[in-house]
């Protein structure tokens, strides 16, 4: 049924939207202590994401809601199966939200330093946890015939998934640094630009290694690319986008660099989706228990209603998201409203 595939594609788009948008503000959180310890500059970094971070986080809520509605069986199995990991995700999400909100409300140095570290550590936590979760989704989990699984926290931390977590950290740090080039100036900009080549090399090496590892260890994933050779464009174009981002940075075309980085993230998410499709959650116990786009989706009526809702809603969402980003464009200046 084309609707199921359409929803799978829409779902990948929503998740990519989340990784691109919340990705740069997570990156800013992770990078902050490596860029500056001076309070004024810290506030510049924080306020670069100030007006948009909560809008970005809404994409995660949307992702959860869309998964619940379009693929309820995946939502139920995945969220309950990764119970403790999900609880930790919630813990760090809450800590991060309050850290941003509380930090500049009081002038004391200890107070600000406490919430700065909370902000940074929780940004790392979200990135690693979600990266590890994605790693386990790609690897497959011990689904039984009722769609139940229970993975302990230690089982989640297998080498492959940890590697994916690290790639996620490198990718979002790079994405965040590229974002910051649009928002900063002077010495702060110089120190960020010094970080970018290092991040880029680290990410490039880690990602290439992970792609090779995935293709070697995962026959089904590799087979899917062989069966649908055109999908190889996704990873190939992703590499071209990284190169483009690098060239744009060197030319000082920061907005183009950011867009190239965002495109790269979308292409990589697309590549993972191509390697998985039609499986959404693979069972390592028995492939008959796999949750796929076909057997785990909501029924036609629901998918149709949801599709109409998405058609009405998404253009507005994109329009005012673009409008808000346009409004807050340019370098950050601190004022009375700032965090």
């Amino acid at each position: 049924m084309w609707l199921q595939t359409t929803w799978f594609v829409l779902y990948v788009i929503i998740i990519s939207g989340y990784v691109i948008l919340d990705g740069f503000d997570l990156g800013v959180g992770m990078l902050s202590p490596f860029i500056t310890h001076n309070d004024h500059d810290r506030r510049i970094l924080l306020n670069s994401i100030g007006p948009v971070w909560d809008g970005n986080e809404v994409w995660l809520v949307l992702g959860g809601g869309a998964l619940f509605a379009a693929f309820p069986l995946v939502y139920a199995s995945l969220f309950s199966g990764f119970y403790l990991a999900m609880m930790l995700v919630l813990l760090v999400l809450i800590m991060r939200t309050v850290a941003i909100e509380f930090r500049s409300k009081r002038p004391e140095a200890w107070w600000r330093s406490l919430w700065d570290w909370t902000f940074t550590l929780s940004s790392f936590g979200i990135t690693i946890l979600l990266g590890v979760a994605l790693g386990n989704v790609i690897r497959g989990v011990s689904l039984d015939q009722h769609g139940n699984l229970n993975v302990s926290l230690l089982d989640l931390l297998n080498p492959y998934s940890i590697a994916l977590g690290l790639v996620a950290v490198a990718m979002l740090c790079l994405h965040g640094a590229i974002f910051l080039t649009q928002k900063t100036e002077g010495e702060l900009l110089t120190s960020i630009k010094r970080l970018i080549p290092k991040l880029l090399i680290a990410f490039f090496i880690l990602m290439t290694a992970l792609i090779i590892w995935t293709l070697l260890r995962d026959e089904q994933f590799t087979q899917n690319f062989k069966d649908r050779p055109w999908t190889a464009f996704f990873p190939l174009l992703a590499f071209i986008s990284i190169a483009a981002a690098w060239l744009f940075i060197r030319r000082g075309a920061y907005l183009s660099a950011f867009l190239a980085s965002a495109t790269m993230i979308a292409l990589l998410m697309g590549a993972i989706a191509c390697g998985m499709y039609p499986v959404m959650l693979r069972s390592t116990t028995n492939s008959a228990y796999d949750l796929t786009v076909q057997n785990a989706s909501a029924a036609k009526e629901t998918l149709t209603v949801m599709f109409v809702i998405a058609l009405i809603g998404m253009p507005f969402v994109l329009l005012y998201t673009a409008g808000v980003y346009y409004f807050f464009r340019g370098k950050v200046e601190l004022d009375d409203d700032s965090y």
């Binding site: 986080e57 509605a69 809603g313």
Partner: peptide, 20 residues
């Protein structure tokens, strides 16, 4: 699920977008 997702698209996105 569909009602929650509709809430996400119509409500949270509107709030999140204009809150800044």
């Amino acid at each position: 699920g569909s009602l929650l997702a509709a809430e996400g698209i119509f409500a949270f996105m509107l709030e999140g977008g204009f809150l800044g």
